[in-house]
């Protein structure tokens, strides 16, 4: 495993820790989209169907378990925790997330590396992950007072896929037969969706002011 891939995984892991820290410490999920969190839980379930069938490494298995466990616990907190759920911006978080699920599933059935159940679910998870941030970005734009942890969480989540792109470029040049168009294009789309956010993130960082996306 190369350093870029490790950096990507760690950024992903830290993003989840930041979100859980926010939920645990201030017992609030204000500004966090439950729609996006549910989509991530679905992404991990569909992608990690191979967790018990294909052993890759201990690192790989542990990380999969962490991502599965944390994504479901975040959804649980936002839906059922008696204090946390009160801070959920339900009226603002109106993105119709199921409109993303069906097109991704159809696309996975049409465009995949191999027509097997596991492979289609894997491909579906890539397509869905690429667009799963959309409800969160919409909510961010609607929220007037976004706290710093939410902004950092979104930034880290975007940075993770950007680092993965560098990892794919590295692997392409160092490994024979490493060619995965579906993964690459999905990852690229995912990163591009963050373009606007990244732009305003750096602007707010440079000018040392609170991030607010223009309506």
């Amino acid at each position: 495993m190369n350093i870029l891939r490790l950096a990507g995984d760690m950024t992903h892991l830290i993003s989840v820790i930041v979100l859980l820290l926010k939920i645990h410490s201030i017992k609030s999920c204000a500004g966090i989209s439950l729609k996006t969190q549910e989509l991530y839980a679905l992404v991990f379930v569909s992608r990690y169907l191979n967790i018990f069938t294909d052993f890759i490494s201990l690192y790989n298995t542990i990380m999969k378990l962490i991502f599965l466990g944390t994504s479901f616990s975040i959804v649980w907190y936002m839906r059922y925790h008696k204090i946390v759920r009160r801070s959920y911006d339900k009226d603002q978080d109106t993105f119709r997330h199921y409109f993303l699920v069906l097109p991704c599933l159809i696309l996975a059935l049409l465009i995949n590396e191999r027509f097997t159940f596991k492979e289609i679910m894997w491909t579906f998870s890539l397509y869905l992950e690429a667009v799963a941030i959309l409800p969160q970005l919409v909510l961010l734009q609607r929220t007037k007072n976004t706290d710093n942890l939410t902004v950092q969480y979104i930034f880290l989540l975007g940075a993770y896929r950007a680092l993965y792109i560098l990892n794919w470029i590295y692997r392409y040049f160092t490994e024979p037969d490493y060619l995965h168009w579906i993964t690459w294009i999905s990852g690229l789309v995912q990163t591009i969706l963050y373009g606007d956010f990244f732009y305003y993130y750096f602007l707010s960082w440079k000018n040392n002011v609170k991030l607010q996306l223009p309506a």
């Binding site: 995984d9 992903h12 191979n50 890759i56 790989n60 191999r114 993965y164 490994e175 037969d177």
Partner: peptide
């Protein structure tokens, strides 16, 4: 069945 080389990623 051998896994595809992209499947060692997370």
């Amino acid at each position: 069945e051998a896994h595809s080389s992209s499947h060692d990623e997370l």
